[in-house]
Design a protein around this nucleic acid. Structure first.
Lengths: 259, 259
DNA sequence: CTCAATTCCGTACGATGTACGAGAATAGAG
DNA sequence: CTCTATTCTCGTACATCGTACGGAATTGAG
């Protein structure tokens, strides 16, 4: 094995099995073991030489997701893309969830930060968020994939390192800084995800019209006066960038009705 | 066909949040038609009388998700739970995605708001968020399900109506108010989803230890000084509630390092 | 009665993730 | 060299999923 394999160590509990614990749907209890994933030692000089590589497989999966969406990333498609048999992929990643994790960290390698922190942590944080937004727009599957992401890989950690440096002037404790980064990332992912969904709906005139009619009907039923008024006075339409900046300003500077 | 009509008002009458994120997977994916879903008139009385109901099916699916997680909600399991044949479900919902949509709006009926807006919109908004958090903790699959949800059903709209009333004192335009509600909901979902995942990891001592070792190893490699320091000075451990309140304060009052 | 509408659901199909194990390739030991 | 341990490759097989199809059963209308 290429090294991700678990040594199956002292698993003293005999009947471990799956615990049927209430959990959030896609995110199961087990998850991916970060040690086996990211900390594997350099590998063996024996046995058959690998025909593929974890990086090549990951890159193929990313290309597929970029071009056709996350749903197109099946083990069969990825294998076909690199000319491998399906089961060969399992030499390089123990399961599909791990492959997803590899994909996320792979694209995170694009998040290179050249400028050091300026000392104005609010401005720096906004710059980070804009970087993340552009990144997610480039890989529209990222917001959805991030929902189940567990442990940061090396590229993600490098970016986190930068964010922590940015937050140094705040003097906050470690937990608070980590928390802020997680919140910021989650917020950007949520916003961009919404942005992408909106764009997808707009691209389908039928659905866009159906949604508009539905909301109009609800607003007209008399039981939703606030909604009716909100829809009637929508305000000036803004570009997605402007909306994002306003949203970012709210988060970092606070919800301020003066905008 | 039952016309996908929604004659029965489920349980309660209040609604809940809206969603945010997209369906970043399949590019321009269709989704669910809100008109067909929520606006169908009651159907003609002819033909065989229905043995089940949309509400019963939805309730069974919700119970299943509450007890065993979203993954346990398969058409076969739901059908078995109510004593129906699998394909009978398709009389009441055109596909599984629609069933998910029904589930989300169904539980949103629990979000009843009794108190009218106080005029202090920041406090009211925080109360809304706390309501949502409790709601999501009661239905741990909700944060994951909300990621793909798009069009608010009747219960969700009722809750939105309340949120809009709360935001009236701000004088913001309609789009801004809707945006704030969406952002708040997304933020709560993200936070609670994280909370649930964290609890799941903690429940598995092996994995918790593995993650701790992994982060310790990264911190010790010398290339992540900020992370090392952040982990070394974590600050006082807080209860999940306290963390949530701090997070909420940041969002609504603004990122303020004095907190 | 007949007829059309509607619900119920058994069967079947294609797709998915992946367990299993046989075979091929390689490196070191003898 | 041969032998053996080790590692990679991948065809086959299976369980499980969502759901298309079509026929049987039930109902109201004419």
């Amino acid at each position: 094995m290429l090294g991700w394999s678990s040594p199956e160590p002292a698993s003293t509990t005999s009947g471990k099995e799956r615990e049927t614990v209430p959990h959030a749907g896609g995110s199961g209890a087990p998850g991916v073991d970060p040690e086996q994933l990211w900390l594997r030692p350099t590998e063996p000089r024996k046995g058959r030489r690998p025909s593929f590589s974890r990086a090549a497989i990951t890159a193929a999966a990313v290309a597929l997701a970029d071009a056709e969406g996350l749903d197109a990333v099946t083990m069969r498609r990825v294998a076909a893309e690199i000319g491998a048999g399906v089961m060969s992929l399992y030499t390089y990643a123990p399961d599909k969830e791990t492959l997803l994790e590899l994909m996320v960290d792979h694209v995170s390698g694009e998040l290179t930060v050249t400028d050091p922190p300026t000392g104005d942590w609010r401005a720096d944080l906004k710059a980070i968020a804009h970087l993340q937004r552009a990144h997610m727009l480039r890989h529209p599957w990222l917001p959805a994939a991030l929902v189940t992401r567990r442990v940061p890989g090396p590229n993600t950690l490098a970016f986190l390192e930068h964010a922590l440096a940015v937050l140094r002037p705040t003097g906050l404790d470690g937990a608070a800084k980590l928390e802020i980064f997680a919140q910021l990332t989650a917020f950007v992912a949520g916003h961009v995800g919404h942005e992408i969904a909106q764009a997808a709906v707009s691209r389908s005139p039928d659905r866009a019209a159906a949604e508009a009619r539905y909301l109009a009907a609800v607003a007209a039923d008399g039981r939703h006066p606030e909604l009716a008024e909100a829809l009637a006075a929508p305000g000036l339409p803004l570009t997605p960038e402007a909306t994002f900046s306003r949203f970012l300003g709210r988060l970092i500077d606070g919800l301020d009705i003066t905008q």
